[in-house]
Amino acid sequence: MNFIQKVRRKLFPPTEVIEGYENPELVETIFRKTASYVPVGEWPLVAGVKTVLDFGGGAGIHYKIARKQSPDIRWAVVETSAMVRRARELATNRLMFFDEIAKAADWLGEIELMHSNGAIQYVPVAIDTIKALCAARPATMVWHRVPITDGIVEPEVQTSFLSDNGPGLEAAGKDKLVRYARHWISGNAFVAAHEGYRVTERAADPREHGTQQFRFTRH
């Protein structure tokens, strides 16, 4: 997006609003942008890793990055039912999409890495989901862009531009606003939910202001 387009969007923002991550138009936008995206660079996190459960991995963008250096990696994306139905067109014998954590774990077998980037805050009951991920017993769990608070945990309404969702350049066509609930998570509750794991890394996440990144290792 060039400077003039950015100014125009700021001065004359879209008026049409779509709701939630299951919206078909949002799902289609993410799917098409992911399908056409060509990643560059390396990803040290997945070097040498054979199996990954990617929670909230959209239409498989993280897999497209990972397979550049690890072509044989097996990758299970856990997503909303709407995204899973659309993204299955991109599935292979090494990339699969699931709307249940247990089904993804069954397909992978032994899970070396659970990866999640900016997704857990959009789950209605985050702590229950974290416990379910821990029950799958990945060797390592890595979280990025987790909004952590030490105060009162209250959901907030967040909006984004439809064209900003998904990787790469914005999709063509009329832009819209996307609105969804975003939940702050108690830091103590987040760590405590990882039963059977110890925190090996915790720091502010430079990708998004006010969020943290974590690495947990299984005991």
Rank of each mutant, 00 (worst) to 15 (best):
R67F: 13
H183D: 03
A104M: 04
E100W: 00
V178P: 12
V199D: 15
D150A: 10
T34L: 10
E110T: 14
I101W: 01
F97E: 09
A82I: 00
I18R: 08
A66S: 11
T34M: 05
H219T: 15
G173K: 08
E100I: 00
I73F: 09
P44F: 11
N23W: 06
R88N: 14
G60R: 12
F161R: 08
E195Y: 00
R145D: 07
L133A: 06
E170Y: 08
S70Y: 04
P13A: 09
P147E: 03
K131Q: 03
M83L: 13
H219C: 14
R182V: 08
W43P: 07
R9E: 08
T80N: 02
E110Q: 11
P155C: 03
T15H: 11
K174M: 12
D128S: 10
G166W: 02
G58D: 12
W143E: 00
K174R: 11
M141T: 15
F98D: 04
G109A: 03
R198F: 09
A189K: 07
W107I: 01
G41H: 01
E16L: 07
A203P: 04
T34P: 14
V40H: 08
V52P: 04
L53P: 02
M96D: 09
T15W: 07
F161G: 11
Y21R: 10
D99H: 14
S163D: 07
D205G: 03
R182T: 12
V7D: 06
G168H: 01
H115N: 14
K176N: 01
I130T: 06
V146F: 12
A171R: 15
L177A: 02
E89R: 12
V7W: 03
R202V: 12
T140N: 13
A171D: 02
I120T: 06
G56T: 05
P44G: 04
A136Q: 02
Q158R: 09
R74N: 04
Y21M: 07
E19S: 11
G56M: 07
V17Y: 06
H144Q: 09
R86W: 08
D175N: 06
H183Y: 10
P147F: 05
H144M: 14
D106A: 04
S36A: 15
H219R: 15
M114D: 13
H209D: 15
M96P: 08
N117F: 14
N188T: 13
G48M: 00
H62G: 02
A104F: 02
G109K: 01
R182D: 08
W184R: 14
T149D: 03
S81L: 03
A132C: 05
W184H: 13
S116A: 14
G48Q: 00
S163N: 07
E89K: 07
C134W: 04
V78G: 00
E16C: 11
V142F: 14
R137E: 05
I18P: 02
M114F: 15
G151A: 15
E42T: 15
A203I: 05
R8V: 10
